[in-house]
Design a protein around this nucleic acid. Structure first.
Length: 295
DNA sequence: ACTGTACCCTGTAGGC
DNA sequence: TGCCTACAGGGTACAG
């Protein structure tokens, strides 16, 4: 699931457990996820202090006292569980809960801190991964160097979108999904942001480009809606599909606020609109929109 | 250089 | 109940 709000929610859940703490032990239950674990992964983590846990796009980055950075990506189904000393069962802080019964056969990485907290990474589909990279090389890393702007940062402006949209032949959906343009949006929040902005996902992204030297009205409309939907989702603790739970046992709640995502055939929720939410497939992914509100 | 498709992997939902 | 198919929030490799 994890788009920016969910990854950030996970980061906030992990931060108090990992930040400033020593990694005492690491266990791997397999040798790869999407990619093989780095050479000497366990040894390079063991004994390191996690100085800082940050997020860039949909990546979590642990800055280690060894000078290396631990890069983590949740893929589609990655989640973290935390067990504090004395806890009977681990508490989930993010992502899918496939009904795995008692034992979690997808618990691929277990990190134990010197205080005895246990952080487990579980990921049924194994599209997630963990890599190590020297901190000073992070920005130049293949995964990071082409990333676009953070949507909640100052760099996302109507003028920026307009300039990136110029001469593009893709449609709006693909344009906003492209991590090289805006880093952190995914399938759900692109649908939601375009709905809020009243823009049809199949519209050409070039319609955002500069008009007589100024960003188009569409571009001006889109930027605040992208921010608003992400902020609202963060506020709600992210979205939950299936039985997602936070460390404190509460759920992310933003899925209840979806205006279009997953609502094919249901009435449009914009007051006064009599439209019906439609689904189409773009670039192999489902897109939801209201044909009446989105032009 | 760009754009669309196939694919990585497992689990679930829904039709029959 | 089982079997089958389609689909799932990610990103990448490749063909055109």
């Amino acid at each position: 699931m994890p788009e920016l709000p969910e990854v950030e929610t996970v980061r906030r859940g992990l931060q108090p457990v990992l930040e400033g703490e020593l990694i005492a032990r690491v266990r791997l239950n397999r040798k790869d996820l999407r990619f093989p674990f780095p050479e000497g992964f366990v040894e390079r983590l063991s004994g390191a202090r996690v100085e800082k846990l940050s997020r860039r796009a949909k990546y979590l980055v642990g800055e280690l006292s060894t000078g290396e950075a631990l890069i983590m990506h949740l893929g589609m189904t990655g989640r973290f569980l935390i067990r504090q000393p004395g806890d009977a069962a681990p508490q989930q802080i993010g992502e899918y809960e496939y009904a795995t019964g008692g034992g979690d056969k997808h618990a691929h990485v277990i990190i134990e801190t010197s205080r005895g907290a246990e952080v487990t990474y579980s990921d049924p589909r194994r599209f997630g991964f963990m890599l190590l990279c020297p901190q000073r090389d992070l920005e130049a890393h293949a995964l990071f160097r082409n990333l676009g702007v953070e949507p909640l940062g100052d760099a996302l402006t109507a003028a920026y979108l307009a300039s990136r949209a110029a001469n593009k032949k893709t449609d709006l959906k693909a344009f906003l999904m492209d991590q090289r343009v805006v880093a952190g949006l995914g399938n759900i929040y692109v649908s939601e942001a375009l709905f809020r902005a009243g823009l049809k996902p199949t519209r050409k992204s070039a319609s955002l480009a500069l008009r007589s030297g100024a960003p188009s009205a569409h571009s001006e409309r889109l930027v605040p809606e992208i921010r608003a939907v992400l902020m609202a989702a963060l506020q709600a603790g992210g979205s939950t599909l299936r039985d997602y739970r936070h460390a404190d046992g509460t759920s992310g709640a933003f899925q209840d606020a979806f205006m279009v995502y997953g609502r094919e055939g249901e009435p449009c929720l914009r007051p006064g609109c009599r439209g019906t939410v439609r689904k189409c497939v773009q670039a192999g992914r489902s897109t939801f929109f209201c044909p009446a509100c989105q032009k």
